[in-house]
């Protein structure tokens, strides 16, 4: 199965989710999204960074320099309290959307009667 590109606007949610599992650097976040989506979702690699910086600027993520697994200097991101709250909200919002979309797409002619 070919990976699906992520829907516009959902990248931020995926990043928040990925970071919520543990502190991670940019490349690690990319791998984790692929991993937790079972390889179904792919991201344009560079596009990750503007999103990361936007989230950091909004105070949802906190970035700090640290050392990666192979002993290299890397920038690690973690979820702030604000980010955790936002993740909960957005997750709930996303589920409602999926449910509504699902209901809408399942609808048949009988439902209109």
């Amino acid at each position: 199965m070919n990976p699906t590109p992520v829907l516009p606007g959902t990248l931020d949610l995926l990043i928040l989710k990925a970071v919520s599992l543990s502190k991670e650097h940019g490349y690690g976040i990319l791998l984790r999204i692929e991993q937790i989506s079972g390889g179904a979702l792919s991201i344009e690699q560079g596009a990750l960074y503007p999103s990361l910086h936007r989230l950091e600027h909004k105070g949802l993520l906190a970035g700090e320099w640290g050392v990666s697994g192979n002993n290299r200097k890397a920038r690690f991101y973690s979820l702030t309290a604000e980010g955790r709250k936002r993740l909960k909200q957005e997750t709930a919002g996303w589920e409602r959307l999926v449910e509504a979309m699902g209901a809408a797409l399942r609808a048949t002619g009988e439902d209109l009667a």
Partner: peptide, 17 residues
């Protein structure tokens, strides 16, 4: 330059993989 370093790290990690 920090931003550049961050992105360089990404590319290098990917190349290594």
């Amino acid at each position: 330059s920090e931003l550049d370093e961050e992105m360089r790290f990404h590319i290098e990690q990917h190349a290594e993989r």
